[in-house]
Design a protein around this nucleic acid. Structure first.
Lengths: 340, 340
DNA sequence: TTGAAAGCGGTACCAA
DNA sequence: TTGGTACCGCTTTCAA
């Protein structure tokens, strides 16, 4: 038997035995109101089949005792949940964070809340994390992934998985995939550079996932009077762009396309220190649409991810839990600012 | 009765009746292995009191069937959870995001996962959101709050609440509070400005929470040969700092302290366009330690929040669920970069 | 060494 | 209009 006492004026109920706050349950309300649990349930759910007087009594008792339904119990019984998993990468201030923040806002509109996690370094650890979410989360959106076989890592996990912009996943993967067509925005960027009279266009970046988009974009301009130069670099961070400054200027390029905005910002810093004028001496385009591109000196032209479209799709999948794996591609967009 | 079938080579079990993936339960493993649920539980939990042969059989069956424990059910039974609520503000790319991302990483180290939400506009909506987390989350860290009485909004919610850097909360509030002493870092910033020969120091910001820290810092330098000027501004964003540029330069100040880094970045842009040299013409200090301060031209001196200390404290509270409300204050720190 | 059974809190079918 | 009760999946006490 448990004894309860009013907990000062804020009307919170506590167990006398422990300091732990006991949440009020349907059973307690039923005892208080002298009815059955089922009746309390009906009153709170505003279902029919209950007298107005009794309903009022029960609602008052519930309010007085400060009843808060236990969502874990409800989810268990209904075998569904209002939580959605989001897995992101670790890089601070990276686009992952913006993407997941946008998704968070969209999910809330539809009554879902995100459970967030950072992608682990080993497939075992990643799997463990996702297992920890079993029963709490029906859908998991993966904004980051590594060179693992999804089928192996996710075997027998009960959730629905949505891979977002994870290019290494094979097309016949049996999980949902939302892909991003990097080349569309890059194409527009290069077109803009060509039309504004630039002819020696450098790409700075690593041999990685973003190459294909750039190559595809460049190919579609074959025959135009422009030269494509590649300066390879391992990294994709601010420092990498900064260090590239010297060799970049020596290449006599009149436009440069960076694989990430962060690299572009690094080059902006180099240019600022070296007295290079942008865009007069060289035009600069980044990739990611980091919000800081609005504020840099000069503001940075870039290629934007289709964040809104991607996240709306995730919300849609969350709501209907599609049985068969879906694949959908959204295009990127060129954003013109001061640096071109 | 439910029928199961092997789901192709990945060994996932499905109910034949529906497309919905049925998670394998202890009961199913028990039936498969011909033992009781309790025995399966003992085997999986690696408890004593079970024969080695039987344990091996059960573990194999569980692995073969792809057993994933249902955390919602476990939490319900144990009346505790491995999830922690985090409530943030809405501003994109704001410090909220960095704080919560750091907390996320620290929580994961201790086996917790965040459930994240954005602070709603009305107290009712905020309360509804937190109710939705009842039973899922034992502790909620609030990185944002409004001008509401916590006692009223949070009445009878079963979780433990930690207010982080929410200055308007009264000291005798019966929830945990982690406060930030803004003046300590500002004091060091001003000291640096004085020692580097500046004497006309402007503060740009709104009459709000951050005033006190600045005033306190200035007071401790009374008697020194320096003049304090206040330029009041409503906002705290990039545009606000940009717009302030003109009147700021007209004030003949030789140093300026902004309430937020974002405002400082706005002023940096103005200075860049107007040909004002920083720090030669005027020294600039921001507040928040936005990572972009490393990359701006020039890099921005600022005052940093004690994010690590605050978040370690939250983790500690999460782990021991303190019964009595605790209040703790951490100091801010001056970060010197190119702009001073 | 094993298993039956009583919960955790909420939902909803079925009978009264 | 009501209430009894069997779940959801997991944990743990207690008895065999």
């Amino acid at each position: 038997m448990t004894f309860y006492a009013m907990y000062n004026r804020c009307q919170r109920w506590r167990s006398i035995e422990s300091d732990k706050i006991m949440a009020v349950t349907l059973k307690q309300i039923a005892e208080e109101a002298g009815v059955s649990i089922r009746t309390v349930n009906r009153a709170l759910k505003e279902q029919t089949g209950i007298g107005d007087v009794k309903r009022q009594e029960i609602l008052e008792a519930a309010a007085r005792m400060g009843y808060i339904p236990n969502i874990a119990a409800r989810n268990l019984r209904l075998r569904k949940s209002s939580f959605v998993g989001i897995v992101t990468g670790t890089v601070e201030n990276d686009i992952f964070i913006r993407k997941s923040h946008d998704l968070q806002q969209r999910l809330e509109v539809h009554g879902f809340f995100p459970i967030v996690g950072i992608l682990q370094n080993s497939p075992e650890a990643a799997r463990t994390m996702l297992s920890e979410w079993a029963g709490m989360v029906d859908t998991v959106a993966l904004f980051a992934w590594r060179d693992w076989l999804p089928e192996d890592v996710l075997v027998s996990l009960p959730q629905q998985f949505v891979f977002v912009d994870c290019p290494m996943i094979s097309p016949k993967c049996k999980f949902h995939q939302i892909k991003i067509d990097r080349s569309s925005g890059i194409k527009d960027a290069i077109l803009f550079l060509l039309e504004s009279g630039r002819s020696r266009i450098v790409r700075c970046g690593s041999i990685g996932s973003r190459v294909e988009g750039v190559e595809k974009a460049f190919r579609s301009f074959r025959g135009r009077d422009a030269e494509k130069i590649l300066i390879e670099t391992g990294g994709s961070e601010f420092e990498d762009g900064y260090k590239l400054g010297k060799s970049l200027m020596e290449s006599k390029a009149d436009a440069v396309f960076f694989d990430t905005d962060r690299m572009a910002f690094g080059f902006l810093k180099y240019a600022w220190e070296a007295g290079i004028r942008i865009p007069d001496d060289i035009a600069v385009v980044g990739f990611d649409d980091d919000p800081w591109g609005n504020y840099s000196c000069p503001s940075l032209s870039t290629v934007a991810h289709p964040i809104a479209e991607v996240n709306e799709k995730i919300v849609e999948l969350t709501e209907r839990r599609s049985a068969s794996a879906e694949t959908i591609i959204f295009p990127t967009k060129f954003v013109q600012r001061q640096s071109v």
